[in-house]
């Protein structure tokens, strides 16, 4: 698999910021305190000038993420994707993810496709 062939699609409209991906990753990779393979970033709550409250979370893989190569070789999902409580993470070939993101455009979702470093 060449770098960039596979990635993650995140629907950050529905990411609840629950930390399940962070902890699933720490456990899968046995990461020490302070290290994360994925981090949930937070924007807001912030009231914009038009009176709308912005409050978003989005998980961002770090350089320690290998997209769970060992798990995916067995046919399992990456641990973050497996456990995501809001069901907003999808693992797959980036072309497929991009197509799915485009398809989801018509819904209330907000998609982001990530190629980990």
């Amino acid at each position: 698999m060449a770098r960039g062939d596979y990635g993650l699609m995140i629907d950050y409209r529905f990411c609840s910021g629950c930390h399940a991906c962070e902890v699933a990753c720490k456990k899968e990779h046995d990461l020490p305190r302070g290290d994360f393979g994925i981090r949930v970033l937070q924007h807001g709550p912030h009231e914009t000038s038009d009176g709308v409250w912005e409050y978003d979370y989005v998980p961002l893989p770090t350089h320690l993420c290998d997209l769970c190569a060992a798990r995916t070789a067995e046919g399992k999902l990456p641990s973050c994707v497996h456990h995501c409580q809001a069901g907003v993470m999808v693992y797959g070939p980036v072309e497929e993810l991009a197509a799915k993101a485009k398809k989801a455009e018509a819904t209330t979702s907000a998609q982001m496709v990530i190629y980990p470093r």
Partner: peptide
């Protein structure tokens, strides 16, 4: 050693919160 969510579960459908994941 580790805890994972059961994908067959109608209840949590494979998903799990951080506390079960850190249970060990």
């Amino acid at each position: 050693v580790k805890v994972e969510g059961d994908p067959n579960s109608p209840f949590n459908q494979g998903r799990l919160c951080m506390r079960c994941l850190e249970l060990p």
